[in-house]
Design a protein around this nucleic acid. Structure first.
Length: 462
RNA sequence: GGCCCCGUCGUCUAGCGGUUAGGAUCCAUGGUUUUCAUCCAUGUUACAGGAGUUCGAUUCUCCUCGGGGUCACCA
């Protein structure tokens, strides 16, 4: 069975990059009928927060990503880590190092001055004398000092590291006894049965260290897939400084989960020329072997396109429900079908859609000056009056086509072009140029409101 | 700086020795539209550079250049 995981550290909101690896992991587990584990890596007490964990969960909920089983918290697993630390100590695979932080810093400076690589010199590796007073030791693991470590990566291929280039006896437990990252990930992944690790390739250089832990403990090494980073427009790793990286900000901006997920799945992964993927298709077609080797630059042009695509293809009932979040309640509006049909063709986001709807539904209180100047000349008022009179005479009028017909009657009778009625009427109804078809606007707001707006405009602009 | 990874249109990407280098997005133009948008059509734009290997390289190898990641008692 394929078991994947997403293992964020709760230091902030869920960001775009994390979501993408989470999505990949999720899809791969689902495709294989496996499990997708969510593990909160909260070993750094100073930087973690409960709110951050909740923010991540909230984002998952919005996107419809469900983890399998209970959420695992590393902070609750101290005794497990302690057990393995003791085991390594007993087996002589790890040891106590009494070097102080100051000494370490000093060593590092010397090495830097000599242009050597900075690494622990192993001075306590085989120490059996009397430990210095007043220093709480850290625990270091005995890492191989020579030889080759090969990471079999499903995205990048086999990558080999020379132990002497990158390894030293790294710390697995701090002076206060708490275990460190590279130690606990390996243990957790092994114990939780995670056999396919999909994560950002910023972890690639950590992997040899984790392999050292796997081997010291005799655990099976999982299959790794290191996904290239998402870069900002400067070509650097995407960070919080780059603006909208918080997943929930996309909800606020009016993007749908589908669009965001579809956008993200295509960032660094592809399936031929296909651009649109439903969740089912993603699950069916996703395969980490098709993940790109190179980093991609984050750019929301395509997200906008996808979002409008999904808005166009969302049933109106569903749209009406989604729009409530954006301050638009029209579940009981009798013309909501007409309104939504017109709006979904032009809005790029749900937020935009809501504000467009509000513009239509609200009686204009002011008129765009330039547009008025242009439209209210000649016999514009006369035309409006004519139209108003014809509308007033109608007992029953509901459909856009009926309003359209009425407009046609006016232009035929007065021998003018469509623009002669369209422009002044548009300003009367909406206060400005541009926007939804007038017949639709009138059908949505109804006869009374239409007549009111025409009267308002005539008195304000004649 | 050491180590590691990467390099096809502006962007997301297809390509896996022989293609007029394809699609999408963006942009531009035209058509449709009372307006704006949608929609449709058309168009501009790419194999980082240099050596090899080969009958033939975007594709394989090496070098250069460029970009990125990582080097913590953070995760």
């Amino acid at each position: 069975m394929v078991v994947t995981r997403f293992a964020p550290s709760p230091t902030g909101y869920l960001h775009i990059g994390g979501l993408r690896t989470a999505l990949f992991s999720y899809l791969w587990a689902k495709k294989n009928g496996g499990k997708f584990v969510l593990r909160i890596e909260d070993t750094d007490k100073a930087r973690n927060s409960q709110e951050a964990t909740e923010a991540i969960l909230k984002a998952f909920e919005w996107l419809g990503l469900k983890h399998d089983g209970e959420i695992e918290y590393q902070s609750k697993r101290d005794d497990i880590y302690a057990k393995y630390i003791k085991q390594l100590l007993d087996e002589g695979k790890a040891y106590k190092c009494y070097m102080s932080k100051d000494e370490l810093a000093e060593l590092r400076e010397t090495q830097m001055a000599n242009k050597q690589r900075t690494m622990y010199d192993g001075r306590y590796r085989d120490f059996d004398g009397t430990p210095p007073e007043g220093v709480e030791p850290v625990i270091r693991i005995k890492a191989p000092q020579s030889g080759e470590i090969v990471v079999h990566d499903g995205v990048k291929g086999d990558i080999s590291f020379q132990a002497e280039d990158i390894l030293d006896d790294f710390i697995i437990a701090r002076a206060d006894g708490s275990p460190t990252y590279n130690f606990v990930v390996a243990i957790d992944d092994a114990l939780m049965g995670i056999n396919e690790v999909i994560r950002g390739d910023d972890h690639l250089s950590n992997t040899p260290k984790q392999i050292v832990v796997y081997e010291a403990l005799g655990f099976d090494i999982p299959k790794f897939y290191h996904v290239p980073m998402i870069h900002n427009s400067q070509g650097k790793k995407l960070s919080k400084r780059d603006g909208a990286t918080d997943v929930m900000a996309y909800k606020e901006m009016g993007y749908t989960p589908q669009a965001l997920l579809n956008f993200l799945v295509r960032l660094g992964w592809s399936h031929g020329d296909q651009e649109i993927f439903s969740m089912d298709e993603m699950i069916e077609l996703f395969d980490p072997k098709d993940i790109n080797k190179s980093a991609s630059i984050y750019n929301t042009e395509k997200l906008d396109w996808l979002n409008s695509h999904y808005i166009k293809n969302t049933p109106n009932d569903e749209l009406a429900e989604l729009l409530v979040e954006y301050g638009l309640t029209l579940t009981s509006h009798d013309k909501k079908e007409i309104l939504l049909d017109a709006l979904k063709e032009r809005a790029k986001t749900l937020k935009e859609m809501a504000s467009l709807a509000k513009e239509i539904l609200t009686t204009p209180t002011s008129y765009d000056e330039k547009a008025v100047k242009k439209a209210y000349k000649g016999n514009a008022i006369e035309i409006l009056n004519n139209f108003g009179a014809k509308l007033s005479a109608k007992d029953e009028i509901h459909l856009p086509s009926e309003y359209h017909h009425l407009m046609e009657e006016v232009i035929t009778e007065m021998e003018v072009g469509f623009g002669k009625i369209g422009q002044p009427l548009r300003i009367a109804l909406l206060g400005k140029m541009g926007g939804v078809g007038l017949d639709i606007v009138m059908a949505v707001i109804g006869k009374e409101e239409t007549m009111l707006r025409i009267a308002n405009a005539i008195s304000a602009n004649s």
